[in-house]
Design a protein around this nucleic acid. Sequence first.
RNA 1: GCGCCCGUAGCUCAGUAGGAUAGAGCGGCGGUUUCCUAAACCGCAGGCCACAGGUUCGAAUCCUGUCGGGCGUACCA
Length: 589
Amino acid sequence: MKILETIAQRISAATGLPAGEVAAQLTPPKRPENGDYAFACFPLAKTRRGNPAALAQELSAAIKAEPPIASVEAAGPYLNFRVERAALIAEVLDDARSQGPGWGRSDAGRGRTIIVEYSSPNIAKHLGVHHLRSAAIGRAICNLHDAAGWKVISLNHLGDWGTSFGQLICAYKRWGEGKPPEELTVDELQRLYIRFHAEAKAQESLLDEARAWFQRLEAGDAEARRLWQCFKDASLKEYERFYNFMGIRFDRFTGESGSAPEVDACVERVKAALAGRKTKQGEDVCRISDNALIVDLSDDDMPPLILQKSDGSSIYASRDLATAELRHREFGFDRCVYVVGSEQKLYFRQVFRVLEMMGYEWARDCVHVDFGLIKFKDAGTGEVRKASTRRGEIVMLEDVLDEAVSRAAAKIRDNKERFEESDDQDAAARAIGLGAVVFGDLNVRRAKDVIFDWDSMMDFEGDTGPYVQYAHARVCSILRRYGAEVPAAPDAGLLKLDDEFALAKEISRFPEVVKDSAQTCEPCVLAGYLLKLCAAFGRYYNLGNRDRDLRALCDDPGVSAARVALVDAARRTISNGLGLLGISAPEKM
RNA sequence: GCGCCCGUAGCUCAGUAGGAUAGAGCGGCGGUUUCCUAAACCGCAGGCCACAGGUUCGAAUCCUGUCGGGCGUACCA
């Protein structure tokens, strides 16, 4: 039985509270000198109309300090427990070692399926830094749910349909200079797109021309369709490079175009479901308004959702409704997550609401996991705003990644004595450069806007990805030098240092952190934990600077074996944790 | 105007299903290396948790209002 569960059971026996509930409330005190686990007596005192401090006193007397509990102490309204260090350390070392790559996993989501839609770029444009955020967060959410026992289906739902492709076809026909469409690059497509919007400002008839092209595309016109396919192929070719570089794979690439054939039938279902339904104002909920087909959401204090544009062509909303239906039909998900920027918050509320109005109970399982924008500071005015592709103002993702990798490579050259001829230093540079950039994106709460800044993005010191990777590399270095196999059953009683115990305690939190991070869809919970874990390791490690006897590789073979096992548990935790964030853990740096 | 999000140290951020004395990193100052990797570690300085009320035994956390910023607010996605 787990130590934490044992404590919970003893409290449960003394109070009558369910053990599971108690376990959830047992937390490490902010200050370690107060003990290893604390139980706050306020809630219980409230239900019993008693005094929390007196209750704590009473419980401290009632609960015996028998192994693995070393002491029970009432401190005001808190009941503080100290555990036998050796027992906790032994438990952690055994868990981490025996579970191996599965260390940190749980079965919290067993039997449930989650769909995670993320990245989902609009084709025919280069990827910008802002695409990194969706990719990093979405991938982490997939990994975290997988680790929490869910069945995960990851989808990249491309923005490959809509009026802008009519615009692109129009631009290509006018200014494409007869270049075979098969040879078009994303770069050229993006230029055509920018040019279209520049010219359309002066010549509004272009917009009508573009609309006509999109209508031809929707009608299945062969020429339009062929051009569109070329745009898509060129885009995917470029995007695949990015996903490969990032180590991201999707279970499936879907796209808005995929739901296009279903849209009409879906719209009919909306109409049928809402037929006869009136708003409080007495109007039909689903009706034609200004020539467009809408669902009136005024009763929910939202603007209407447009299902069909006044020119008869389809719109993203109805495509998303149809897509949701398709997904539920195919996967029967328990949760469907859309990792999309927070500027679309209202929109998703509308879509989910309409799904609900259609009678789908599963509408409440659809979640918009939103995240803040990446903004740019204008060098001239100092003004902060979001970038616009139409104005040609994006910072290309590829440039950012290249820069990060080359800065990491430079740093590696400065430390080249740590590497051997045979080491793959390019791979290390990629891991570290990417680690810095990805960790930086994941270390803040999703909702926060991020202002793009080269230097802070490339930071390799302090609370950064490379800091965590560096801790891992040092751990690996110790294990390398140890040479022998990591002892499976060391004498945990030999680990007497406060910093050893602190490290072990930090390691023991890992599975709970993973669960929490998954449940909240906040990768920053895990990222922050890894920083704390590595700080605990760093303190421990640095003890050896002053005193050789405090090193993992010390003269006493028994002590050394136990320390190596502890260090190895740290290694597994860091490596598994980084893995969940989509960051690799180099063995040397 | 209305809705949602954000406001914590000079800067970037943790801490938010209410709980003990609000924590990190960067920047500043001062230390630690005859190497288990200094991409590290330790110390000092730095806070009216935007402001004002309220709920509570207890509020950075919940409620109301104000101010400041962002995003959104019917045919782009």
